[in-house]
Simulated assay, not measured.
Amino acid sequence: MSEDTSLTAPVAISENNNKKYAGFWMRFWAYLADLIIVFSINGLILSPFHLFGDMATYKIGLWTVTGILSTLVFYLYFVLMTKYFQQTLGKMIFGLKVIRTDGESLEWGNVIFREVVGRFLHRVFFICIVLYLVVGFTSEKEGIHDLIADTRVIFDR
């Protein structure tokens, strides 16, 4: 009996080996650029709330209106940019791109798990820097959020 050598797993692995994965420091600088962009967007959106005095501190349960809006902007920025462009502005600046491990286009599930669930886990746990340091010790330089979403960050240039 002859074995079928056209399995998709080995092909996906050999295709991924041709990619240059982005390491911790490149991803770190891209993330810092993204944070500056998100804080700027939040400043533009939320500045009218500060003009009206107490609206900035208006509470809904445990959260303030500005806290809810700034968190919403943060997650929407990462989700929408990654879904539609496969990269955020910070990744564009540094020539990085998010891909799926199987080479297919990103689906909403990949993006939601990577950008919302992954980032939420990183922000909730105090040891978030340790979770990001995983990037430096894995063969394809994937973080915990990449492992969850089956994504990788590669150099696009």
Rank of each mutant, 00 (worst) to 15 (best):
S105F: 07
V134R: 02
I148N: 08
L131G: 00
D156S: 14
Y75Q: 07
F74A: 06
I60Q: 08
G118W: 01
A12Q: 15
P10I: 15
G23I: 10
G109D: 09
V116R: 02
V124N: 05
F74H: 14
F137C: 00
T8W: 05
T5S: 11
D102W: 14
T5R: 13
D54P: 13
N17V: 13
F24C: 03
F74N: 07
V124M: 01
R123Q: 08
E15L: 15
I148F: 13
V135R: 03
D146Y: 07
L69A: 14
M92L: 09
A30G: 13
L44M: 15
I148E: 03
S47M: 06
E107M: 06
A9H: 14
Y75K: 04
I68T: 06
I148L: 15
S6I: 11
M81Y: 12
K97W: 13
H122Y: 12
A56W: 00
A56L: 02
F126M: 10
V153P: 09
D34P: 01
M1I: 07
L46M: 08
I37Q: 03
F113E: 03
E15S: 10
F74C: 03
H145D: 05
G61D: 04
G118P: 10
G136Q: 05
W29F: 15
W25I: 13
G90W: 07
G109F: 12
I68M: 09
L89A: 04
G90V: 05
E3F: 09
F24I: 10
A9L: 15
Y77M: 07
L32E: 08
L51M: 12
D146F: 04
F155E: 09
E104M: 01
Q86V: 00
H50R: 14
F155I: 13
F94H: 04
E115C: 08
L147Q: 11
L76Q: 08
I37A: 07
I112P: 01
K91M: 14
T151W: 05
A9S: 12
K97T: 07
I112D: 03
R27L: 10
I41C: 02
I99D: 11
P10D: 11
A22K: 01
C128M: 06
I36C: 12
V79F: 14
L96I: 08
W25K: 12
G90R: 03
S70E: 08
F39L: 15
R123N: 12
N42H: 08
L89H: 02
I148V: 12
V135T: 02
Y31A: 02
V130W: 10
S105G: 04
I154D: 11
D146N: 07
A12C: 09
I99E: 15
V135K: 05
F137A: 01
K141N: 15
V98G: 11
D54I: 06
V124H: 09
M81R: 09
I112Q: 00
F49P: 01
F126I: 12
E115M: 07
K20C: 05
V38M: 01
R123L: 14
V65E: 13
Y132A: 03
T82L: 09
K83H: 10
G23P: 11
K97E: 13
L96W: 13
D34L: 04
L96K: 08
S47W: 14
K83P: 10
F137N: 01
I129E: 05
K91A: 11
M92D: 04
D4T: 08
G23L: 06
Q87K: 13
T82K: 13
L32S: 01
A33P: 10
L131E: 01
I93G: 00
D102Q: 14
D34S: 08
D102H: 12
M81F: 15
L106A: 06
I37D: 01
Y31T: 06
